[in-house]
Structure formats: C-alpha cells, structure tokens
C-alpha cells in the first residue's frame, strides 16, 4: 500500500502540488498524463531519488519520506531499461540480491521462477548489448523483482519498444502482476495501456491530479475537459444547461437526463458523431445540418471536421465509409449525436 499525502516537489520552472494518492496493496495503479505532467518526477520521488519539498509518503504504514532509496524496498523499471552494460543478464538480475538477507534457497527458487516466467533462462550469460528491446525490458523487470520489492514502479515500460514487443511485455506485466501480488505503479501517457493493465488510475496534468478512480470510470466519466480529451473525447465544448438540454453556442443538444449542478462542459467521442448524407426522418433528435470543413488522414481511420453553425465537430470514419460516402471538403452533410453518447462534465 502506498499512501501519498499532500506531496509537493518544487523544481526550477516546475512543481508537483497537492498530490494525494492511495494505492491499495497488490493493486495495479496507473499514473496517466501527457509528457511534462510530472509523472516520472513523482515516480522518482516515491523511489527516493528526488528531494521532496513537503508532504509524506508511506509504504505499508511506514513513513519513508526521509529514508534513502536503498532502504525503501521499492523497485523501479525505466522505459530505457537502464541495464548495467558492463554486466551479463544474470549479473544484472542478481545485482541487488546481496543487499537483501533472505534464505538462499528460497531466493534461488524465486530467481529461477522469475527467469522462467520472463523467458530469460537461455539468455543468462549473454551480454546486455546483444539483447532485443523486449528482452532488455524483461531483464529490467526481473532485476527489479528479484529482490522482492514491496512496490514496483514502472516508468513508461512499453514506450521505447517496437509494437510487437509492446504487446508481449504488456501481457508479461499483466500476468506477472496477477501472479506475484506486488503493488505495481505504472506511469504512462497511453490511455490504452492503462485500460488494459490498470485497475485504477490517476490523471496528472501540469503537476496536479485532475481525477482518480477506476480506469473504466475515468474512461467513461472524465471529470475535466483535459481528462475527456485525454481519454479520446475529441469534441469537448463549454456548455450551459437548461433542464435536459445543453446549449453549445447556437446549438441545442438533447440529453438523456438533466445533469447535476455545476457542470460546465459536454464531451463527445469522435466515433459517436455520426455523419449522414441525407436527413433521416426517424426522430430528428440532435440532427444538425453542416458542411465538411476538412478531412484528415489518421492512418486506419479518417477524421472529418464538420462545421455546424459556429461549432466544429470532429467525427471518425473508416476509409471505406469515407469513399462510399464520397465526402469532400465543402460538401453538405447531416450529423447525428445520440443523447446517450453526450458526456456532461
């Protein structure tokens, strides 16, 4: 269990402020945020590698705020692996063992199990420089877990990997976490990773936490415009509310139910903005006439910008649909937004 209380770190030109996080024992917790949000800084603060301005960090009830890193029992895995280049795979993995007094037989068993699980047996005597990215990351994970830390910190562990290795390590992490029962705290800027791996997540932006909760909850109910955009809601507009209606500039959107008080935004995923060539006469709820402003190629899918009055909606179409509909810039279209896909923040 990690309990972070009113943590504050001030650096020249940057500050982490008012951080309060509670990570449960054995949980896979993700710390989300864009580059420069202060995620790695927070990780290193928990590991004891950067000085803290104020606040407290407790692990399993022990206040470790002023304890040097080597006595914290917290493992760390960096995105660039940070393997010791002058040591072999085995020497890397066993690096920390001598500082932890454990039963040699048990620790040998644990080591064998780890290397088996991470597929490192064949590589034991190899030099670090001949490993692939995925192998390196597995060595880094084994090295951190070899000393049985109470917490494992992962700093964007998938970020530097090729896509196919990324998939592999993602599964390795998920399985390992289920099997070893150690608390994992992972930093990432990729929400998909958090969705796959994390149980709960904290959203970090500009050195502050914007939302904490189960990952699916954060995904479905973002609390702030920033989080909404981060979880992929491409359409976020300030709005005023009138009963079960939201007013965005000159548009009126029907909602499923009247929102709670002090809500100020609506957010809609791009894939929930439906584009039609003809106005269908089904029920006419939230159907607006607009003009295609721009079509942007996003690889597998295309983003289509449609202007409706003064509001610009972003919609997502597959390439096939796009060709079929023959959408070109300047074309008149209709868009439809179902009330159930409108999120109120």
């Amino acid at each position: 269990m990690i309990r972070i209380e009113t943590l504050r770190i001030e650096l020249p030109g940057f500050a982490l402020k008012d951080i309060d996080i509670l990570v449960q024992d054995g949980e896979f917790f993700t710390l989300l945020g864009p580059t420069g949000a202060g995620k790695t800084l927070m990780l290193e603060a928990i590991a004891g590698l950067v000085p803290i301005t104020s606040g407290h960090i407790r692990v399993n009830g022990r206040d470790i705020t002023h304890i040097p890193p080597e006595q914290r029992g917290i493992g760390i895995v960096y995105q660039d692996y940070a393997l010791f280049p002058h040591l072999t795979v085995l020497e890397n993995i066993t690096f920390g063992l001598r500082y932890h007094k454990t039963d040699p037989q048990a620790s040998e068993q644990w080591l064998q199990w780890l290397m088996e699980r991470l597929g490192l047996r064949q590589l034991a005597s190899r030099s670090i420089s001949y490993l692939s990215g995925g192998e390196k990351q597995r060595v880094a994970i084994a090295r951190a877990l070899a000393v049985k830390p109470s917490v494992l910190l992962l700093d964007e562990p998938l970020c530097a990997l090729d896509p196919n290795f990324r998939e592999e390590i993602r599964h390795v992490l998920k399985k390992l976490h289920q099997e070893v029962g150690i608390t994992f705290l992972m930093v990432t800027h990729d929400f998909a990773e958090a969705l796959f791996l994390g149980e709960r997540a904290a959203m970090l932006n500009h050195g502050r936490i914007e939302q904490i909760g189960p990952v699916s909850h954060v995904f479905k109910r973002p609390a702030t415009p920033f989080v909404a955009e981060f979880v992929g809601m491409r359409n976020v507009f300030p709005a005023t509310f009138d009963d079960a209606k939201a007013v965005v500039d000159d548009l009126e959107l029907d909602l499923l139910e009247p929102p709670e008080r002090d809500k100020r935004y609506v957010a809609i995923r791009a894939e929930d903005v439906v584009i039609r060539k003809e106005k269908l006469c089904r029920n006419n709820v939230n159907v607006f006439k607009g003009k295609v402003l721009e079509v942007i190629d996003r690889g597998i899918s295309h983003e289509v910008l449609v202007r409706t009055g003064t509001v610009i909606f972003k919609a997502m179409l597959t390439k096939g649909t796009l060709l079929e509909m023959n959408l070109l810039e300047g074309k008149e279209v209709h868009i439809e937004i179902r009330p159930s896909s409108i999120h109120v923040l």
Binding site: E44, A47, G48, L49, P68, P69, E70, Q71, R72, I74, G75, I76, Y78, D80, A82, F84, F95, G96, Y99, H100, R143, A144, V147, P149
Partner: peptide
C-alpha cells in the same frame, strides 16, 4: 553514464558508495 543506472542500483539496495 546515465544517472538512471545509479538510481536503479540504489533502488536495488546498494548504498551510494556501493
């Protein structure tokens, strides 16, 4: 030498001197 190597070593239990 990346400072992260030293960080990892510390996190594994080695003192600054070690």
């Amino acid at each position: 030498i990346p400072v992260r190597l030293e960080h990892v070593s510390r996190s594994l239990g080695a003192s600054p001197a070690k």
